[in-house]
């Protein structure tokens, strides 16, 4: 991913972190530049998570469709489907903005994989579910609000 490469080049500190992760066996060397760094998954807010992914200012895009319920009665299992109509989509990341660690997952797509991911995520509370799509080295985003009702009668 170009974005990540940019991140690694940013400074010796960044490069050092990756090197340590590789040395510790956390990342296989081949993965180190193809994946979002694990640190992005530990970011406590959306801004830091995006920064960690190397996607600080993704452009809003209408070509990304997020299919998720308007109201999720069970925040532990929220089905989310992301479809990207952007040509050359190489990664789809899913963030639940108000989760303790917003970055839920990042899917790198290659070898003919379509811009489509379907999964189930956990949400701590009502918030935006954000998809960040990487295509041709650029980042695009779209979001959809999901209301989470914990307990109660689905109201």
């Amino acid at each position: 991913m170009n974005a990540l490469r940019r991140n690694v080049l940013k400074g010796a500190a960044g490069a050092g972190t990756v090197a340590v992760a590789v040395a510790a066996g956390l990342l296989k060397p081949t993965q180190a530049l193809a994946d979002v760094p694990r640190s992005a998954f530990e970011a406590k807010n959306v801004g830091d998570a995006l920064k960690g992914m190397g996607a600080t200012a993704p452009a809003d895009s209408k070509d990304i469709t997020i299919k998720a319920p308007d109201i999720a009665e069970n925040g532990a299992v929220v089905p989310v489907e992301v479809t990207s109509g952007i040509a050359g989509t190489s990664a789809i990341a899913i963030l639940a903005e108000k989760n303790a660690t917003p970055l839920v997952a990042d899917f790198g797509l290659m070898g003919g994989a379509e811009g489509y991911i379907s999964t189930r995520i956990k949400m701590g509370q009502t918030s935006l579910v954000r998809a960040v799509v990487t295509a041709g080295g650029k980042s695009y985003t779209a979001a959809k609000e999901v209301k989470v009702t914990i307990g109660g009668c689905g109201g």
Binding site: A76, A113, S118, K122
Partner: peptide, 21 residues
């Protein structure tokens, strides 16, 4: 075709659907 990083924010017993052309 797919190389994904996940976190604990994915539901228990993860489901994943993807498409390959």
């Amino acid at each position: 075709v797919l190389d994904a990083g996940l976190s604990g924010g994915i539901s228990k017993n993860p489901y994943l659907g993807f498409r390959v052309k």
